[in-house]
């Protein structure tokens, strides 16, 4: 089914929230591939379900699902982030995006991003950004093709465990 016929909207039922939570876990499981700091907690499903609830309720959050024939096939979550010293503030940041494998390569992710951008703009966002693991080359080329450019680099290192008490 073409992406145009797909409904992009907030999840409306318990069932849809459940499925969204499942997709959230799948999204983070992909990230686990790229860096151990993306490793999830044991039994992440209940945590994901709570997160989804928060995303759905919080004022500065946007949570949308792609629905095809009554079934959730994709998910996006973004939030509005403020930094009052910058002209571009607030920024709309997309943090989680997932599309079911059977529905990929037909523009679902692109539509999710467009709709999320609209909602973030309604909440005041002046620009939109996407966060993803540095080594995820699929994401790099995907966002580049949509006209995004690299902005922030996040470098990370583990803290050494304390020796003295």
């Amino acid at each position: 089914m073409a992406a145009e016929k797909m409904a992009i909207r907030p999840p409306v039922s318990e069932e849809e929230l459940e499925r969204a939570a499942k997709f959230l876990v799948r999204f983070y499981r992909v990230n686990e591939e790229f860096d151990p700091l993306y490793t999830m907690v044991d039994d992440p499903e209940p945590v994901a379900r709570q997160l989804i609830q928060r995303y759905a309720e919080e004022e500065n959050s946007v949570l949308l699902v792609a629905v095809s024939e009554g079934c959730v096939v994709g998910l996006i979550h973004g939030e509005v982030r403020h930094n009052p010293i910058l002209r571009a503030s607030p920024l709309g940041v997309m943090m989680e995006l997932y599309v079911h494998p059977s529905y990929r390569r037909r523009g679902v992710a692109k539509r999710l991003i467009e709709e999320a951008a609209k909602k973030l703009r309604e909440k005041g966002a002046k620009a939109i950004a996407a966060e993803f693991p540095h080594l995820n080359e699929i994401a790099v080329s995907f966002y580049r093709d949509l006209g995004f450019r690299p902005l922030t680099s996040v470098y990370i290192k583990e803290l050494e465990e304390k020796v003295e008490r």
């Binding site: 799948r26 499981r29 992909v30 591939e33 079911h100 494998p101 059977s102 990929r104 699929i138």
Partner: peptide
């Protein structure tokens, strides 16, 4: 199949298997 737990990992580690999962359903 496309709902396998490791499907997204396959997309990265073995895209040939991934493609088979998606195409054969």
């Amino acid at each position: 199949h496309p709902d396998r737990e490791d499907i997204d990992r396959l997309m990265i580690s073995n895209r040939w298997k991934y493609q088979i999962a998606v195409e054969t359903e």
